[in-house]
Design a protein around this nucleic acid. Sequence first.
RNA 1: GGGCGGUUAGCUCAGUUGGUUAGAGCGUCUCGUUUACACCGAGAAGGCCGAGGGUUCGAAUCCUUCACCGCCCACCA
Length: 719
Amino acid sequence: MELPKTYNPKETEERIYKLWEDSGYFNPDNLPEKHKTPFAIILPPPNVTAALHMGSALMLVIQDIMIRFERMRGKKTLWLPGTDHASIATEEKFLKDTKVSKRDYAGKRQEFIDLVTEFALKNQKTILKQMRAMGSSLDWSRLKFTLNPDSINAVHEAFIRMHDMGLIYMGSGKVVNWDPKGQTVVSDDEIEYEPGKTILYIFRYAKDFPIAISTTRPETKVGDTAVAVHPDDERYKKYVNKTFDVNFAGVNLSIKIVGDPFVDPSFGTGALGVTPAHSIIDSEIASRHNLPTRQVINEYARMSKEAGQLLADKKTTEAREILVDHLRKQGLIEKEEIIDQNIPRAQRSGGIIEPLPKRHQFFINVNKPIKERGNKTIRELLKEVVEDGKIKILPERFERIYLNWVDNLRDWSISRQMWYGIRPPVWYKPPVPVDSNIEYKVSKIKPAGEGWEQFNDTLDTWFSSGLWTFSTLGWPKQTSDLTTYHPTNVLETAYDIIFFWVARMILMSKVLIGDIPFKTVYLHGLVRDEKGRKISKSLGNNIDPLDMAEQYGTDAVRMAMIIGTSVGNDSKVSPEKFKAYKHFANKLWNIARFTLMSLPDEIDEKADLTEKDKNLLKQLAELSEDITRDMEEFRFYLAGEKIYHYIWHTFADRIIEESKNKLNDNDSEIKKSAQKTILRILTTSLKLLHPFMPFVTEEIYSKLPIKDKKLLMIEDWPA
RNA sequence: GGGCGGUUAGCUCAGUUGGUUAGAGCGUCUCGUUUACACCGAGAAGGCCGAGGGUUCGAAUCCUUCACCGCCCACCA
C-alpha cells in the first residue's frame, strides 16, 4: 500500500473522529462484553463564557489519555461531558463583551437573562465543537448542561434536603462580603487581596473618652457600638463592661468596653473599635458580647442616614476625608502612621468588598452536627475523607492545603444577587421588609394560597457544580448510571479551583449521598506562555489550542501539552514545542510507510523468531510494563516521553536501520523473522502511543496487514 | 504572620522517591540528499544540578541554614 510521504492531520482527524463516534464506543454501553469494570471521569464542565483556552485543552488531553488507557485495558469507561452556565462569570463576561451596564436592564430581568442565554449558547456550541477537535472520546449521548431541567431539579432537591437537615439556613442580618460593583454577595473564596498601604489613625471618639483606638477606616467608626480590649490588659481592665455615651461627629454613640482575647494588646493602642455591621471579625466579637449593630454604609458603598449629617450620602472614600478632617480640627487624632494593608476585591468584578449586614441570605452551616451522617459536621466530613485516604489528592502537597482550608472554613454564603442562574426553591410573600426576617417556604412548586413568589436571588454557581459528579448521573433518581459509576474514579482539574469546586463536590456528595464523589483527585497546573506569564486576553498572549491544532495537528498539540507537564506544576507552551511533535507524528508516519513497503501482503505468523528478534520484543515488553506502571501512577508526562523516545531513537534509529539488511536477506528465516518482528513492534508502539496521539495511530493501524482488526481505540493494551 | 513550590545545558523542562560517565525537545556547530522520513540521518559542543554546611561507601535526590523568583492561606482593627 502506498502512503503519502507526509502525514496530513487535517485530512485525517475529522474522518477518524467520525469513525470513532459512529462506532459508538465512546458510550460505555456499547463497548464489547469484556469491558466490565467501570471507570468513570466526569469532565469539569467548561464555563460557557468564551471559547476553549489552553487550560481546558490541557484538561481534555490529560483526561482523554486516562480514558483511552483504561478503555484499552478493558474497563467500562465513561467520560461524561457537560458545560457550566457559570452564573456570575458569564454575566460579567457578557457585560464586558457587549459593553452594556446591568443598570440598563433595571426591571427587565427576563430580557437580560434571554440575552445572556443566547450569548452562553453561542459559546457552548463553539466549545463542544472544540472538544471534539481535541480528539476527546467523550460520551456525547450523556451530555449535560448545568441549566438543563434535570440539573435544576437536582439543585432544588439538594437545597430542600439540606434545608430539611438544618444545614441551609437564612441568616438574619449576618455580615456578608458585599461587592458594591457587582451588586452581589460573594463567598470568602471569591475575594482576592491586593497588597497596599493605608493610614492607621489613632484617636479618641471624644476628648473625655478614656481609651484611644486605632483604625484604618475612620468613616465606619460612626457605626461603633463597643471597644474591645484584651481581658488581661492592665491598662484597660478597669473599664471593661462599662458603657460610655459619646457624641462622635454628630452621632450619639453608646460604647461598651468589652474584654475579648482576640485583641492583640501590642497593636496600636491595644484597643479596637468594634463596628459590628462593617467587619466580619467585629461582627463575631459583637455576637460574643451581645452587642447591637449599627449599619452606616449602604449597598452602593455610600454612608447611610445613620452615619449622621456630616457623612450621610457620601461615598466611603469621601466620608473618610471629611471625618479625618473633622477629627483633626477637634484635636482628637493622636497619631497617624502608614501601614501595609491588603485591599479585598471581588475576584470577578474587581469591586472593593464592603462587609455589611444583609438579610434574607442563605448560608450552609459547616459546624452543625448532621444526624443523618453520624452527627458529624461538614467540616469533619470534609476532613476525614482526606485524612483517612479515602480520597487521594495528587500532588500530595495539596492535601495539606485542602485541610488548611477546611480548618479556616466559615459558613458558606450561597445566595447571589445575580440573574443568570438557578433560583432556590424558596417562596415568600412580598413586600420584603428591610429590617426584619420574612416567612418563607421551601418547595419545588408554588405553595398553595395567594401571593407567593419565588425568591429573586440565584444560587452560587458552585452550589450546582458541587452536585456535578452525581447530578449528571441521574440523581436524585437511583439510576443504574449512578450505582455503576459513582463514586467516580478520578477528578481531574486545575489546582486553582480546589476550594471552589473540589471541596464543594466532596461536601455535597458526603452530605447528600453519604459517599465520596471520587477516589483520586489529579490536579494539573496552570498553562503559561513562553515567558511564564498567565495566559489572558488582556496580555494578548493567548495561544488558541485550536489554531495550534490546525497548524500542527491535534496529536502534536496533545503531545506537546503533556510532555514536560508534571502533576500540579505550571507549564509553558510555545509554538516551537508544537512543531517538534508535529515532526514526531510525521516520523511515525514514515516508520509506518517503511514497514508497509517492506512487508508482504500477508505476514507469515508462524515464522520462527531469531534470538535477536526475540530480544527486541522482550525489550519492548519491558518498556510496556514500565509505561503501564507510569500510566497507573499518573505519570503521563513520563510515559509519553518514554514511548516517544522508544519510537524515534530505538525503533526508527536502530531497529529499522538494522533491519534493512535482514529484510533483504536471502535467508528466508531471517527475513520472515524480521518482518514479523517489525510489524509487532509497530503494532505495540501504536497501542502504547494511542492515548497520547490517537488520530495518527488509529489511521496507521487501519492500514496494517493484521487479521481480525478492531478499532485501535478498543484494542488490548500491551500487557 | 503561617504554609507551599521553583532554582538542573543558551531556552523550556524531565530526572519514577540515594546507586554506574546527569536526560529530552528546541537552539548552535560539523558532515551527509543511501528509494521510510530533510518535518531526515550521523556526529559534536554545551551542566562544580542556586550558595554554604551536614548525613552516607555513595547526594541533583535526604537533613540544615541562606539567597532569589513565584504561589496559596490568614486579614492586625
